[in-house]
Every structure is written in structure tokens, then in C-alpha cells.
């Protein structure tokens, strides 16, 4: 696999413009017009990402309601139960599994083909993983969470990935924000990931965020057949510049563990906190990257991204953050003479 040191990438979602949300809610607007509007925003996002200078892009999930709900609506056996708090006044629609799950068709293929046709950069396609779908849903149909999760991996996610790869997807990010919620279920996370990609040839990342301690993924995660981890760190890091452990307290624990286990997979390093409006300076981004390179001793292993999808921030804030992320990465590259 070709090495691409300090490649900058997005994680997934960008907030939809207000006009699009309004239009999508308008019952008098036809489905065709709504689809056209979604395409316009997908294209706009792609071009904005390219203008900013990201190396790896997707469409900001312009066609998806939300990473979890979008999938739930398209899998037989799952249905929406209602809204549950994520934090404060932010809610998500939670699903319930009322009968055995079934794949009903390739639900990300059309959006991927649109991106493929219009993007001039490397593409990373995000999909929601089996473990998170199971963990965030109420299980009323299976005897155990294990049965539910593995069935989702084998009968829904694997056929979906096969269809996506058939149409040309070669880098797929499996979103598993729930992966570290239950540390004693790490083996199930690994098994469901491996079942999902079994027999499929592509590059696979796993996005995990808001873990208490990513080190808890070890040693089980060593068996996971992913090529990249895309992880949130900035949320827990200090805003002080510098590349000492004390300044980079949000990164230290995982990177030490990563080094101890002699990991050779790539890290998508979360350098932007997606829950605050403050814009990280390029120098702060630079130092977060330099610290990771110092700890891994290999810039080929370090890729650069926000902690998570940026949809909780305004579009202006999101693009300002991403811009500084790219500038900060360039500064790090210069320092490392890459």
C-alpha cells in the first residue's frame, strides 16, 4: 500500500446549509428537487474541501440525515423508536430491532458514485459499523447482543461493503463511535469488524471517538484487520503549544500504548475539537502532529483529521478549523522536511 505521510482528511459530516434544511422540510417541494439540492450541497462540500487543500475527501454526508439514522432506515428488521438525548439539547433518533436483520440493497452506492465522478482527490467513504448499529439500538429480537451484532456484520454490512467495492470504493472508513463504550466487549467489536470486511480487498479505517481511554482497546484490537484508526484526541488535549507530554496530555496515553505494541497501522489523528467554536491555531495543529510523529517515530503512520464529524459546528467554523488544520499540517511537514 502506498504511504501518504500526514495526509489530511475529513471524518464525515458537515452541517447542512440552512436553506437545504428548510427545503428538505418543505412538503411542497418534490423529491426530485430535494435530491438535486442534496447533490448541489454534496458538490459544494467536495469543492470546498478541495479548495481548503484536504488530501482525502467525501461529500460531508450531504445526503444523510445522520450517520446512524440513515442506516437504520435502510435495514430490514430495524425501525426508529424515537428521540434520545446525546447531550444537552442534542438528540438522535434511536432504532429498535424487532426482527432478524436483512440487507435491502446498497444504500451508499449512489452517493459514492456521485462523489467518484466529481472529486479530484482521494476518496474515503464513511459507513456506520455493525457494532455501533447494535449498541445504539434496542434489541428486542435476538437472544444476545453478540448474535445481533454479528448478524448485522454478516448479513448487512458485509454485502454493503461488497457492493461499494464493486462500484470502485477502495478506502472505507467504518464508523464505530460506540466501540469503546463497553471495554469488556472489545472482542465483539473486533469480531464484527473482521466479519464485516471478510474476503473484501480495500483499505479500511475505523473511526472511534470519545473513549475514556483508547488504550483499553488493547490487546484485542491487534487482531482487527483495519489499516487505519481515525481517533478523537483534541477534545481531551490542552490548548498549549509544544510537543512535550505535559502539553499533549490528550494524546500521550494512546500513543504510548500504540508504540509499546509496535503497531504499524496508520493513525488518523484528531487535531480539531468538534465541540467548541474556538478555532485551533495552525501552530497548535502542527505541535499535535509533531508530537504524534515523535511518539510513533514514523510520519507515514500519521494522518490528520478532526476528532469527529463537524456537523455540530456552523459551516463557517468548520471550514475555518479545517483550513487551519491544513496550514498546521503543512507547517509540520516543513519542520519534518517531508
Amino acid at each position: 500500500m502506498k504511504k501518504f505521510p500526514l495526509a489530511t482528511q475529513e471524518i464525515g459530516s458537515i452541517r447542512k446549509p440552512r436553506w437545504l434544511v428548510k427545503l428538505l422540510q418543505d412538503k411542497n417541494v418534490s423529491d426530485e428537487v430535494k435530491e438535486e439540492a442534496r447533490s448541489d450541497v454534496a458538490l459544494l462540500n467536495l469543492k470546498l474541501f478541495e479548495d481548503i487543500g484536504l488530501d482525502v475527501i467525501y461529500d460531508g454526508e450531504a445526503r444523510r440525515v445522520e450517520m446512524y439514522e440513515y442506516s437504520i432506515r435502510r435495514i430490514e428488521g430495524l425501525q426508529l423508536a424515537g428521540k434520545i438525548r446525546s447531550w444537552d439539547n442534542k438528540y438522535y433518533n434511536k432504532g429498535r430491532c424487532t426482527k432478524k436483520v436483512k440487507y435491502t440493497g446498497p444504500y451508499h452506492v449512489d452517493e459514492f458514485l456521485f462523489v467518484k465522478e466529481n472529486a479530484n482527490r482521494m476518496i474515503k467513504l464513511p459507513i456506520t459499523g455493525a457494532y455501533t448499529l447494535a449498541d445504539w439500538s434496542y434489541n428486542e429480537a435476538y437472544k444476545s447482543k453478540e448474535d445481533f451484532t454479528i448478524d448485522l456484520a454478516r448479513k448487512v454490512i458485509r454485502p454493503l461493503i461488497k457492493d461499494l467495492v464493486k462500484t470502485g470504493a477502495d478506502f472505507i472508513q467504518i464508523d464505530e463511535p460506540a466501540a469503546t463504550t463497553h471495554p469488556d466487549e472489545m472482542q465483539l467489536v473486533v469480531d464484527s469488524f473482521n466479519e464485516s470486511i471478510k474476503g473484501i480487498n480495500a483499505k479500511f479505517g475505523i473511526h472511534i471517538c470519545y473513549s475514556e481511554d483508547y488504550s483499553n482497546m488493547y490487546p484485542e484490537v491487534l487482531e482487527m484487520k483495519n489499516h487505519q484508526y481515525e481517533l478523537e484526541f483534541a477534545n481531551r488535549d490542552s490548548w498549549n503549544k509544544g510537543i512535550n507530554h505535559s502539553n499533549r496530555n490528550g494524546y500521550e496515553s494512546f500513543l504510548k500504548t500504540f508504540r509499546e505494541y509496535g503497531e504499524k497501522k496508520e493513525i488518523g489523528l484528531g487535531v480539531l475539537d468538534v465541540h467548541v467554536d474556538e478555532i485551533e491555531s495552525p501552530e497548535l495543529v502542527r505541535d499535535r502532529i509533531l508530537y504524534a510523529v515523535k511518539m510513533t517515530d514514523n510520519p507515514n503512520l500519521v494522518h490528520v483529521n478532526p476528532d469527529c464529524g463537524l456537523r455540530t459546528r456552523s459551516r463557517e467554523t468548520s471550514f475555518a478549523k479545517l483550513k487551519n488544520m491544513v496550514i498546521g499540517t503543512e507547517m509540520a511537514k516543513k519542520k519534518l522536511q517531508l
Binding site: S86, T181, Y210, E212, N235
Partner: peptide
């Protein structure tokens, strides 16, 4: 402080 996971739930608290 930061948003932090509330036990094993997909719910976060300050």
C-alpha cells in the same frame, strides 16, 4: 469540563 460519556451509554454529560 469536557463532554464525557455517561457510563456505557451513547449519552454525554459535562
Amino acid at each position: 469540563g469536557p463532554l464525557t460519556r455517561y457510563y456505557e451509554n451513547n449519552t454525554f454529560y459535562r
